[in-house]
């Protein structure tokens, strides 16, 4: 400290490890989110309530282990999707509008720790949203998840969160917060419905089913249903899932770059 006077430019410039910075940002964002509980409640309890009101009373579904498990899985997919699109879509757009965002950009952390913090926050909220859903499914329906499938299921939840996180980020970096809220709401429910997250796709007419099969929500749903209940995976699911993931990744990168270009050239 005392001998560094000759070269003050390098002596103290030891960056904190990236994972520490990511955790710092995660903690900050989680604190911010939980301080406005109403924003959380809608996201967290809606899927569990939907299960409670629409599935539990239908005993022919609720008492059939395969149907019940699929019902929990598809509402789980809705949790993943809505948390990803709200925290990343609306959350990023709102943050960009705040002057504090400019301040945070001048702190000694690159884009990665901030992004990692955001993604970890989204995953924590997803996990939180799945708890009441799984509890309702476990206690009030015949849905089952053998221990052997549990680990694989957690892995698939993380996997299906990827494209929707990317979609959320594209919306968040592309749009203003007001537009982002509108777009997330306009996109989320039709995508969820047509993807078979509220009603099983088995009841869809064939034309609707073929549209459904091309949607990312359906691909995610089928992956989750497959891993939890062992139902067969349609042949189109994996290519559709990878295709949308790629499209959303490109959109997210373009939106992020565009935002940098507009504001920070």
């Amino acid at each position: 400290m005392t001998t560094s006077t000759e070269r003050p430019t390098t002596a103290a410039l030891t960056p904190r490890p990236g994972w520490r910075l990511a955790l710092t940002h995660t903690k900050f964002q989680i604190l911010e989110t939980v301080r406005i509980p109403i924003a959380l409640v809608g996201n967290l309890v809606f899927p569990a309530l939907a299960l409670l009101f629409f599935v539990v009373p239908q005993r022919e579904v609720a008492d059939n282990p395969v149907f019940a498990t699929a019902a929990v899985a598809q509402l789980g997919m809705f949790s993943v999707m809505s948390v990803a699109m709200f925290t990343h879509g609306v959350g990023v757009a709102e943050d960009r509008a705040l002057p504090f965002d400019t301040f945070v950009r001048a702190l000694p952390a690159g884009a990665m720790p901030r992004l990692m913090g955001r993604i970890l926050t989204g995953l924590c909220l997803t996990a939180l949203a799945l708890v009441p859903l799984v509890l309702v499914g476990w206690l009030l329906t015949s849905a089952t998840l053998p221990l052997g499938r549990l680990a694989a299921s957690v892995g698939v939840v993380l996997l299906v969160a990827i494209p929707f996180t990317l979609l959320g980020l594209s919306i968040g970096y592309w749009l203003s917060s007001k537009a982002a809220i509108a777009i997330v709401q306009v996109v989320l429910f039709p995508l969820a419905f047509a993807g078979g997250l509220f009603m099983p796709p088995e009841v869809f007419p064939p034309w609707m089913n073929s549209i459904s099969l091309a949607l990312p929500s359906r691909a995610g749903r089928d992956l989750l249903v497959w891993v939890t209940s062992g139902q067969q995976l349609p042949a189109s699911t994996i290519p559709v899932f990878l295709g949308w993931t790629l499209v959303f990744a490109v959109m997210a990168v373009l939106a992020y770059r565009g935002d940098e270009g507009r504001r920070y050239r």
Binding site: T9, A12, L13, T14, P15, R16, R20, L21, T24, K27, F28, L31, E32, R35, I36, L98, P99, F100, T102, F103, A106, L107, P108, A109
Partner: peptide
């Protein structure tokens, strides 16, 4: 790491506590 700046007065995260904001910023420095 060698730089300190101020947020605008209106730009502090309203729901966070004073200590939390200081801890967050301090967490970026060695």
């Amino acid at each position: 790491i060698g730089l300190g700046t101020t947020p605008q007065e209106t730009g502090l995260p309203a729901t966070l506590r004073v200590r939390e904001v200081i801890d967050f910023v301090a967490g970026h420095f060695p």
